[in-house]
Design a protein around this nucleic acid. Structure first.
Lengths: 115, 115
DNA sequence: TCGCTTATTCGATGGCCGTCGTAGTATTGC
DNA sequence: GCAATACTACGACGGCCATCGAATAAGCGA
């Protein structure tokens, strides 16, 4: 099961049932955070924090990851010095049926149009 | 065609094709605006501005209507001194497939849970 | 052990937006 | 024409949030 050479550092994740619609929308209304989500969705695999293509500093990016994690959108785990990020798609689907995929699709289209 | 005892005052509405996902999300991230949308969806008919149940002043409410209208979410038209509001559901569905209904459903559930 | 890489924390800053009250405009009905 | 109703426009205020740089921590490899 990947055996991520596991680390001592752990990360807390909320139960999606405890995430409000307000929290979810506030997380996804930010263009940078939506870019992060889009890149995760497109990759189809977990991505480390530093490999995202976003126009903000690293410290700002850390902030955005925190917001996304606390909104139940992503799951994070350490692998050595790097921190991996994964979408919690199935859980979001349970919590807000249809919302997440529609949003990801809209974000994908939005990214393609000014091509 | 309804013949709303028509008025001189007209209202501008954007083409939904010109509404960005960003604009759409910014409109719906505000709890008051989402309440307005929920009440419109639940009513199933057009509602005048003054009959909404929201915890803000009238001038603030006007502001929220402007934001919703400019985001393509609602259509407004005058009937005498009152201004009616309608959801642009079909058009939103064309622009962002699946997104609007999923959001309305989530908002409905959110309004019911702390019942 | 000593850097190198990766990511976090902290405090400061700037801008944007939701809110309000007041004054103003349009329409109806007397 | 006048008053009443329904909504709008304007300016001000306050708070929140995205952003940054610098300092810190933690793991990896030589």
């Amino acid at each position: 099961m990947a055996r991520p050479r596991s680390s001592a550092r752990t990360v807390d994740h909320p139960d999606v049932a405890d995430v409000s619609l307000q929290q979810f929308l506030e997380a996804l209304v930010d263009p940078v955070r939506r870019t992060v989500v889009s890149q995760l969705a497109r990759a189809g695999k977990d991505i480390s924090c530093g490999t995202f293509d976003v126009p903000v500093s690293l410290s700002t990016l850390t902030h955005h990851f925190n917001v996304l994690r606390e909104a139940g959108v992503i799951r994070q785990y350490y692998v050595g010095t790097t921190k991996m990020n994964a979408l919690r798609m199935e859980e979001m689907e349970e919590r807000f049926p249809g919302l997440f995929p529609a949003l990801v699709a809209a974000a994908r289209d939005a990214a393609e149009s000014p091509l």
